[in-house]
Design a protein around this nucleic acid. Structure first.
Lengths: 258, 258
DNA sequence: ACTTGCTTCTCACGTTACGTGAGGATTTAT
DNA sequence: ATAAATCCTCACGTAACGTGAGAAGCAAGT
C-alpha cells in the first residue's frame, strides 16, 4: 500500500522504462517521492498517480512541455485546450487519409503490372498529392465548373482513367524512338486524346490553350513524365495528329464517303 | 529551359527552403548538377525532376534514408513496398482515431461543467485509453459475454453513463469529509450502484468480487480517482450501503409493507 | 578601386522523447 | 567477503530540418 518502490520495481509495475523515469525526473515532471543519500530513487503510490496523469495527457497528444505547464498552472482551460487538440488531431488524420488514398490509387495501378516507369509513377503521385492545388491552378485556365466536374468523378472511374493514363504514358515512352508520324504512335496519341476528351467533353482546343500558357515566373507545380526531348517529340506527334484529325473532320464535314 | 539556377532561384521555383536543399546535398540525395569553383550550387531541370521524386516519396511517408535506398537499388518491389506503407499509415490513422474518440468523449463530459476534478478526468482518459486492455483484464474477473455487452453499448448511452459517472465521482469526492453513514453520502453511493447495475444487470456481488481479487504482481492497469483515504471511506460507505440494502431487501422479501 | 547590399557558404547548436551503451558506485544475495 | 544485481551519471544518437553566426562571393553604383 504505502510502500516505497525502487525504480526497477516501479518501472515494472507501470510498464515504463527506467530511462523514461530518469527523463521525467530530469524534466521535473515526476520527481520520486524519496531519494536516498547516495542518489537512489524511490517511488510511492502517489508517484504512480502522477505518472498516470502524464501518460493520459501524452495519449491525448500533448507534449511533455505542455504537460509540465498544465501541472504548474492553477487555471487550465480544459474545454478550449481539448477542442484545440481535437482540431490538431483531425488535421493529422486528414493528412494521413490523403496519403492512404494516394497509396490505394497507386496500388490499384501497380497491381497487375508489377513494373512501372519511375517517371510515370512519380507524376501520378504528384498528381494525387497536389490535387487541390491543381484544382485551383487549373481553374485559372479552364472553366471552373469543368474542373469540379473532372474531380467529382466516381471513385472507380477515376481509378480506371488513371490506369489508362499510366498505360498510355508508358507505351508512348517506349515508342519515343520511332518517327512521330508512325501509325503506332498516332494510335496512342489518339487514345490519349480521347482519354482527355472523356474528361473535358469535346474541347480539344483546351490542350493547345494549356500548353501555350506562360508559366515562367510561377512555382513549378508539376511536370510531365516525359523528358524535354520526349516532350518535343510528342508535340510534333500531336501536331500531326491534330492535322490529320482536322483533315478527317473536313472529310466528314464535306464528303461523307472518302 | 536548360538553364542553371542558383540555389535561391531554385528554392523559389520549387517552394523548398535553401536549408532543405543543403541538407539533401549533404545526404547525397540531390547533388546540384553543377558546383562552382568556390562552392556555389547550381541546379537544372534535371535536378527538379529528382526533387519531385523525393517530395512524392516523402509524401507517401517514406524516410529520406529509404528514399536514398530506392534511388540506389536497381530492383524495387513497388507492390510490396506500397502495401507495407499502406499498413503503416492505416495503423497510424487508427491510433489517431482513438485519440479523437477520447477527446470527443472528454469534451462531451466537460462541455457544460467547465470545471472538473483532475483526478476524475485522468481516470476517465485512462479508461478510454485502455479500453481494450481493460476488456481483456475484466474478462478474467467477470463473465466474458457481459464484458462484451458493457462495451457494446450504443455511443450516446456510453457518453451519458460516463457523464453520470463523472458527476457522481465528483460529488462523492466533495462529500469525503462527511461521515460515511451520512444520508447524502448513502444516496450517492446508491446512485453509483444503480449505475453499475445498469451495466451489469443485477449482479451486485461482482463489485465485491472485483475488489477482493489479488492484483499484487500485475502491472497496475488503472487506478480510481480516489485517494487511499477516500477509498477506505468509500469502502465503509459501501459496506453500510450494502448492509442497509440487505435489510431492505430482506424487508421486501419478508413483509412487503414496511 | 571601393563601397554597398544581396546571396550564398560552412560550421554548429536546437528540436522531441527517449534508446543505448560506458564506466563506476551501491545494494542484495550467497 | 565476494559475486551478482541494480542503479547511478554522463553523453552521444535519432529525423529532418530551423535558425543564427561569421565570413566570403558577386553585381552594381560611385
Amino acid at each position: 500500500m504505502g510502500e516505497n518502490y525502487s525504480i526497477g520495481e516501479f518501472s515494472k509495475k507501470t510498464a515504463t522504462t527506467i530511462r523514461t523515469l530518469h527523463y521525467y525526473d530530469e524534466l521535473g515532471l515526476l520527481k520520486p517521492s524519496y531519494v536516498s543519500e547516495k542518489g537512489r530513487r524511490y517511488y510511492t503510490d502517489k508517484d504512480f498517480i502522477t505518472l498516470q496523469r502524464i501518460l493520459a495527457l501524452k495519449f491525448l497528444g500533448y507534449s511533455l512541455e505542455q504537460i509540465k505547464e498544465f501541472f504548474q498552472k492553477k487555471t487550465w482551460d480544459l474545454m478550449h485546450s481539448l477542442s484545440f487538440q481535437r482540431n490538431e488531431m483531425v488535421q493529422k488524420k486528414e493528412q494521413i487519409e490523403n496519403v492512404i488514398k494516394a497509396l490505394d490509387r497507386a496500388l490499384h495501378i501497380v497491381e497487375d503490372r508489377n513494373e512501372i516507369e519511375p517517371s510515370v509513377f512519380i507524376t501520378l503521385i504528384n498528381t494525387i498529392q497536389m490535387e487541390n492545388e491543381q484544382k485551383e491552378w487549373l481553374k485559372g485556365y479552364i472553366d471552373k465548373d469543368l474542373v469540379e466536374e473532372i474531380y467529382s468523378l466516381p471513385e472507380n472511374e477515376q481509378l480506371e482513367l488513371e490506369k489508362k493514363w499510366v498505360e498510355l504514358s508508358t507505351e508512348l515512352k517506349k515508342l519515343a524512338d520511332l518517327d512521330h508520324e508512325d501509325d503506332r504512335v498516332q494510335v496512342l496519341i489518339g487514345d490519349m486524346m480521347s482519354l482527355v476528351n472523356d474528361l473535358t467533353g469535346d474541347d480539344l482546343a483546351f490542350v493547345q490553350e494549356i500548353s501555350d500558357k506562360e508559366v515562367e515566373d510561377e512555382i513549378w507545380l508539376f511536370h510531365s513524365p516525359f523528358t524535354a526531348e520526349e516532350e518535343e517529340w510528342m508535340a510534333n506527334a500531336l501536331d500531326t495528329y491534330l492535322k490529320r484529325k482536322g483533315v478527317h473532320l473536313n472529310n466528314e464535314d464535306g464528303t461523307k464517303e472518302s
